[in-house]
């Protein structure tokens, strides 16, 4: 170690920083900036969380408290009456069942279709590969509104109207482009060398896919399945057009909104919100992968 004289500047020990004025000012500046960033971050977080907190307050209050004015910021007493009232209302259990059925079917269908399609797009050069990507992206750009009306009429003509599985088909069609692109990016992130290595060491291509690629791609595929579930669970426009007596939960709630009491509405909003909160928590790390890919 070279030890040199330090002209003009008195030596400092790392343990005793010099608290001269300039340094203090600079430090205060740095801290102020950081505090500013935190203030903005927390403000935005409050903006996002406050409405959720308020609706949770409503959901856990008694129906009397929900109707009360002025309203409290905390449920007092905490009660499941409003949620029970909502869940026991006419048709809610059935609608929830329909929603889950539709969402699960959409997840299964879109995953089954998207895994081979995504793999093909990620791995193979085939004629029209770019065209396929482009077409899928353009389908993404079609408004649900535009697709739903003619589809409803077709289903009517075919006698398939008002059946939950047709809604699942619609939701599959809506999410498929996203799912294919996401899954293809997941596959693209697994190096092809892994598969080649597996084949060199005696796997058939199918085995190589099942034993090497699939395990590595599984978390990403699961994330995209969850995304499909959330989209289907939340989708209301196509649902309300394509079903009549077999409404899904959002369609049922929306259709009966003007006849509903506040406790019903607020409990409904909270019940619909909970699965989304949980699912987004699970896929939060994949969000950027998904959208990063779709940006291209």
């Amino acid at each position: 170690m070279s030890t040199e004289a330090l002209p003009n500047i008195p030596a400092v020990s790392p343990k005793e920083p010099m608290w001269d004025a300039q340094r203090r000012r600079a430090l205060i500046g740095v801290r102020l900036r950081r505090a500013g960033v935190y203030a903005v971050a927390i403000t935005i977080a409050v903006w996002v969380l406050l409405p959720i907190w308020l609706i949770a307050t409503m959901a856990f209050s008694t129906p009397q408290d929900v109707r009360a004015f002025p309203k409290a910021l905390f449920p007092n007493p905490i009660s499941l009456d409003s949620i029970n009232f909502f869940l026991n209302a006419d048709g809610i259990i059935r609608a929830t069942g329909n929603s889950i059925f539709v969402a699960l079917l959409a997840v299964v269908l879109s995953t089954l279709l998207a895994v081979p399609a995504g793999y093909a797009i990620a791995r193979y050069m085939f004629p029209g590969r770019d065209a396929v990507r482009l077409v899928m992206l353009s389908v993404r750009a079609f408004p649900i509104v535009v697709l739903a009306v003619p589809l409803a009429v077709i289903f009517l003509q075919l006698g398939l109207f008002d059946q939950p599985f047709t809604l699942a088909l619609m939701h599959t069609a809506l999410t498929l482009p996203t799912t294919v692109l996401v899954i293809s990016s997941v596959f693209a992130s697994v190096p092809f060398e892994f598969e080649e290595a597996a084949q060199v060491f005696g796997c058939t291509p199918l085995q190589a896919f099942a034993r090497v690629v699939l395990p590595l791609a599984l978390p990403g595929i699961a994330a995209s399945a969850i995304l499909t579930f959330v989209l289907s669970w939340n989708e209301v426009f196509a649902a309300i057009l394509l079903t009549l007596s077999n409404r899904t939960l959002p369609a049922h709630i929306l259709y009966n909104l003007d006849k509903s009491s506040d406790p019903f509405k607020f409990a409904a909003a909270f019940v619909m919100l909970v699965p989304s909160l949980i699912f987004i928590f699970f896929i939060r790390r994949y969000l950027f992968n998904m959208w990063g890919q779709i940006n291209k």
Binding site: I9, V12, P14, P17, Q22, R23, A26, V30
Partner: peptide, 16 residues
């Protein structure tokens, strides 16, 4: 930013 110590350029403490 350094965790401790300082940087002096041209006789001026620029650490922060």
């Amino acid at each position: 930013m350094l965790d401790s110590g300082r940087v002096v350029i041209d006789g001026r403490d620029v650490t922060y």
